[in-house]
């Protein structure tokens, strides 16, 4: 952005605040997720702050690695997720945000592929397919936003007169659909799994341990906040409505997670390309003709 010095200072402060606050929100959300999921399964469930306890415990664990480079990939995952979140709060280019987010994801895939464990490798391959499934929908969402606001800058969404949802209902549905993939929730949880007792062990993260796993966990929180932020964009004005809707969407994701069983990659690719791209494209064509 073309920015003045004063605005630059504000931006830096905003970025720093985001870096500090986002993990708290994300951790809290995933704590609530675990609690509610447990209740849905008739369990009592862990305390809401359990994710934080987990991370602290992981940080204190012995530093074991399968190779010397794993930590770098974990940090790559973290840094670029944070970078894309900062792009969101600084209201930068939405399309580039998606690409930076993709970098973050590619980094964790590389980390999983850098070890010679079959579980981790298969998880990585599946994660690549997941990326291939949701990436087009994310990009189409950006195009939809452009056709509505005539700009790629997130800034313009806030100056736009009405909520995006009026113009982009189908794009929103497609986004919610791929959100399940992005959050690696059931039925699309096949690159990693909630339990270490499945065919894939923990897939993508099988060979990460201790502090590395802590970094990955924290990145998940940033990512979660980012994705919730993207939902908020659809209802940007007033902001609290957007946040409320984002929470409702997250609740829906939890329900879906708990009531569905894993599908195959072919099914996912077909479903997300036909339903996701189909819905988003339909929406975009009508915007284009309007």
């Amino acid at each position: 952005m073309m920015i003045t010095d004063n605005a630059l200072l504000n931006n830096i402060i905003l970025a720093v605040v985001t870096i500090i606050v986002a993990p708290f929100l994300g951790g809290l959300l995933s704590g609530i997720d675990r609690k509610i999921s447990a209740r849905m399964q008739n369990r009592f469930g862990p305390p809401i702050f359990q994710p934080f306890f987990d991370v602290f415990k992981l940080l204190g664990k012995e530093r074991i690695a399968v190779n010397q480079t794993q930590m770098v990939y974990a940090f790559g995952y973290l840094f670029f997720a944070v970078a894309s979140l900062i792009m969101l709060v600084l209201k930068q280019d939405l399309l580039m945000l998606m690409f930076v987010l993709a970098f973050s994801n590619v980094s964790i895939i590389m980390g999983a592929m850098s070890v010679r464990s079959p579980y981790s490798k298969i998880g990585a391959q599946r994660e690549i397919i997941q990326m291939m499934s949701y990436e087009p929908v994310l990009l189409l969402m950006v195009v939809g936003v452009y056709l509505t606001t005539k700009s790629f800058m997130i800034d313009s969404i806030f100056t736009h007169g009405q909520p995006l949802l009026y113009n982009l209902p189908l794009v929103f549905l497609a986004f919610i659909f791929i959100l399940t993939i992005k959050l690696r929730k059931s039925p699309f949880d096949f690159s990693t799994s909630h339990h270490g007792h499945q065919e894939l062990i923990k897939g993508l993260t099988t060979e990460f341990s201790g502090p590395q796993l802590a970094v990955i966990e924290v990145t998940h929180w940033y990512e979660l906040v980012l994705l919730m932020g993207l939902i908020v964009l659809f209802f940007a004005k007033p902001l609290w409505v957007g946040i409320l809707i984002a929470l409702v969407c997250y609740f829906i994701e939890m329900v879906i997670d708990n009531i569905s069983a894993r599908v195959t990659w072919k099914w996912m690719l077909k479903a997300s390309w036909i339903v996701g791209i189909g819905a988003a494209m339909t929406n975009i064509i009508w915007l284009y003709l309007k």
């Binding site: 993709a102 590619v106 690549i128 397919i129 990326m131 291939m132 990436e135 087009p136 990009l139 189409l140 195009v143 390309w273 791209i277």
Partner: peptide, 9 residues
Amino acid sequence: IIGSACTVV
């Protein structure tokens, strides 16, 4: 868009 999703793979 679909092409760039494939490139990643």
